[in-house]
Design a protein around this nucleic acid. Structure first.
Lengths: 199, 199
DNA sequence: CCTACCGATCGGTAGG
DNA sequence: CCTACCGATCGGTAGG
């Protein structure tokens, strides 16, 4: 099957590109760099992708898909805001660690997306953010969460769960479940000792 | 004084470069882009900097200096681990917001530093990290902080305070003091309501 | 600080 | 999937 073979090659290119874009950054990687690693000539890429830009697009939108799948599962499998929040954190971190290079590219290199993909990408991020915000708002309304500025709350959460690829050796030291538990616990309860908390 | 004029021009270049590198990324900005904005020819840069790489070096190491100054002030002005921690967060966020573009370049573009600057930069980050880790360890030892994995604790903290430039419109919405207070409170106490905390 | 220029490399195309 | 090639642009230098 020619199509099957072609899809394999396309996946291989996407995988190699994820690793190179992660390591060196999108702009610092040339088609010839990728070609060498894949074992073909640079010109042959254009049988699989329209352009260098479309490789980046593929990586970013695949990851967006993964994140949304995780989010939807987290929301449908739980009801209370705090259970939903923990599940969101768990699913999100699983997706990050299972696709470490691609997710790093997703978080770091999306700025180099060409139009109209850039606008579409930003719209997806807004939608994801909005769904998480609603969980936090429901938690504040129900009294499960401390009342706080929702801006700070939601972006602090994103900083925590999107900053993982900057952690040195994160993949060697921890499983997804461990990190998720500890980050969820930190976000919910902080690092202060309860007995020492009221000064 | 020729030297005074030259230093002004050098600062102007560094400032313009910070903004461009922040907006487009180091690799996506050409010397000719910068030249146009500064109002000189590309070749004239080499009277002020040895290379494109040395502009990035200048930005990153200037920021490293700022962060260390803030850290040292925080440590010397306070004694208890939790007061030191709050001061570290406050100083760090002040530095980020006061040098928004340059700090974004510091956090995002350091990978493009050339040797030996890259190694030296990583060494500085290790030293900063180590000092923060010691504050957290002292706080755990004294009972001020909950006992937790120090890796998770320190990198979660860095994610929180280094992820600020990804927050949309952070500069428009908040003052440094507001953000610092809220992030410190979140990191120390979490978002759970104390009354709902023990399930 | 400018003009004039260098070799290298870029993303991409034509044609097979 | 390859060979052969394109125009554009890159960081940087020589010489004034």
């Amino acid at each position: 099957m020619g199509e099957r073979k072609s899809a394999d090659r396309k996946d291989q290119i996407a995988k190699v590109a994820s690793e190179y874009f992660h390591e060196k950054g999108y702009m610092a990687v040339s088609m010839r760099d990728l070609a060498k690693e894949v074992g073909i000539e640079a010109a042959s890429f254009y049988n699989h992708f329209d352009s260098k830009a479309s490789i980046l697009k593929e990586i970013c939108f695949r990851m967006a898909d993964e994140f949304f799948t995780g989010l939807n599962e987290a929301l449908s499998e739980h009801n209370s805001p705090s259970e939903q929040l923990k599940a969101i954190i768990r699913k999100h971190i699983e997706v990050v660690l299972k696709n470490f290079s691609a997710s790093a590219v997703f978080f770091r290199e999306w700025r180099h997306l060409s139009e109209p993909w850039l606008q579409q990408f930003l719209e997806l991020r807004r939608r994801y953010e909005e769904q998480v915000r609603q969980v936090l708002n429901r938690g504040m309304a129900s009294g499960a969460f401390r009342k706080a500025d929702q801006h700070v709350m939601v972006y602090a959460l994103f900083s925590l769960i999107n900053g993982l690829h900057e952690w040195p050796d994160v993949q060697r030291h921890f499983s997804a479940a461990e990190i998720a538990d500890r980050i969820a616990s930190l976000f919910l309860e902080g690092i202060s000792n309860a007995s020492a908390q009221k000064s």
